[in-house]
Design a protein around this nucleic acid. Structure first.
Lengths: 246, 246
DNA sequence: ATGGACGCCGTACAAGATACACCGTACAAG
DNA sequence: CTTGTACGGTGTATCTTGTACGGCGTCCAT
């Protein structure tokens, strides 16, 4: 109902710019930027209406004249990020390199703003940012022989992979920060404990593979390696589809 | 520090079973099961210490004698789920079908317990459930020619895909429930509004592909289709790697 | 000039997690 | 059998969150 309407208005900055009454002391952009700056500096958990308001020098309830609720603010933050993403290098190269570039651009986004991967996104924020991003990224698939529905699915697939990688990567970093111990420290401390409990006879494969992976990657989970490995699999998988369409 | 130790103790049910003092009125399993039942019935957001306690007929603080904090309870819930997953059909078939079965088992888990995909997981809960699951799932990759590190990475890749699919699927369902309108209704109401705002000249590809995908799949986003499409890409991608190793 | 629309804000409330201190229980030691 | 004490259970309290509500003051349209 009016809910969706209001959010879409906000996303496209269709503010009616009222004539009567007191003038606005802030702009929606200021509010969104303050929230983004806060999230960049202290993470998504630090983004409370109180903190954003404080950073803007207003009282919490003031924000509600700019935004219907917190969820909308988060949507706006995300769309603003999308809008500001660089969109270069569409041309040239083969489709594989173009898709790799799309993945890389998204990886860079999440590296600069890890909280972006965590925003609880019910329906994607159909704002100008998402629109421009979607259009730009679809270009990477043009000329590969996929039909429209496949192009959409393929893009969703790539973006989903990168987002998931970003999420696990951020989670791993957060775990290190929260506990104050690196993976190495954690393993050194918990390892002996786990030794007693991991039954080599019962789970031989798990123990063998887990140890091999841990030793090679220096931790129980290595986000960088998971991304690098996964991206090649993503590209190979799309390769098979695309070759079948040609 | 003792933090990790305590959690691992809990995961492996190494409760010291104290002799002195009042007898425990509940078991850890009861607490975890109550939380799982609650999450199944009303979602992860409904799982507060207050609600779990209420369902068990105790006062909130009582739970803290069983569990150090809420995060640990969530870890325990997840590991309990893992432990109860069916583990049949490892044998026979080719690796592709075995991996597909692994994906399918996980999809079924998330379908039965959508909240499982949402648990904020810092470090995976290294309990008996995860252990058994890991061992079982690795078997799907045996004999495919991958080395140990590759097996681990490949499994992580598959599981990540399924988890992400489950998350987006749950998010889409939640959006429908929260707003009280189906995707169709949402599109019918917001569509005309978006028409005015989507610039066909500026974003021709986005509008064309978006419309095609929306029309074909009946919504802006179709989780089932995304899963089906993605799974084939995942398997194809691993196929390329495995063939290269043989 | 003035009335009404609207931005701003103070207060208040209902969750939520969990620290702390107290109480009573029930086993181990005597 | 008594008693000290370890430990489970809980009432109270603190702090943080989002946000509803109503009042106040401003400033444009009339």
């Amino acid at each position: 109902m009016a809910e969706a309407r209001r959010t879409i208005d906000l996303l496209w900055f269709d503010e009616p710019q009222s004539r009567r009454g007191r003038k606005k002391g802030l702009t929606l952009t200021q509010v969104v930027d303050a929230a983004i700056a806060l999230a960049d500096a202290e993470g998504l958990d630090a983004v409370s209406m109180r903190r954003v308001a404080q950073d803007l020098g207003v009282v919490p309830m003031t924000l509600y004249t700019y935004v219907p609720d917190k969820a909308a603010l988060l949507d706006l933050m995300l769309d603003a990020l999308y809008l500001r993403m660089p969109r270069d290098g569409d041309g040239g190269a083969g489709w594989r390199e173009r898709i790799r570039a799309v993945a890389e651009q998204n990886r860079a986004l999440y590296e600069a703003h890890p909280w972006a991967a965590e925003i609880p996104v019910s329906r994607p924020p159909l704002g100008p940012g998402l629109m421009a991003k979607y259009d730009h990224e679809l270009r990477a698939f043009e000329g590969a022989g996929l039909d429209d529905v496949e192009m959409d699915a393929a893009l969703t697939y790539v973006l989903g992979f990168v987002q998931h990688a970003a999420r696990t990567s951020a989670a791993a970093r957060a775990a290190v920060e929260r506990s104050g111990q690196t993976d190495q420290q954690w393993w050194e401390e918990s390892g002996p404990l786990l030794e007693k409990v991991f039954d080599r006879n019962r789970y031989p494969l798990a123990v063998r593979v887990g140890e091999a992976a841990g030793a090679e990657l220096g931790a129980a989970f290595n986000a960088g390696h998971a991304y690098a490995f996964g991206l090649e699999r993503v590209l190979d998988g799309l390769d098979v589809l695309i070759k079948a369409r040609q």
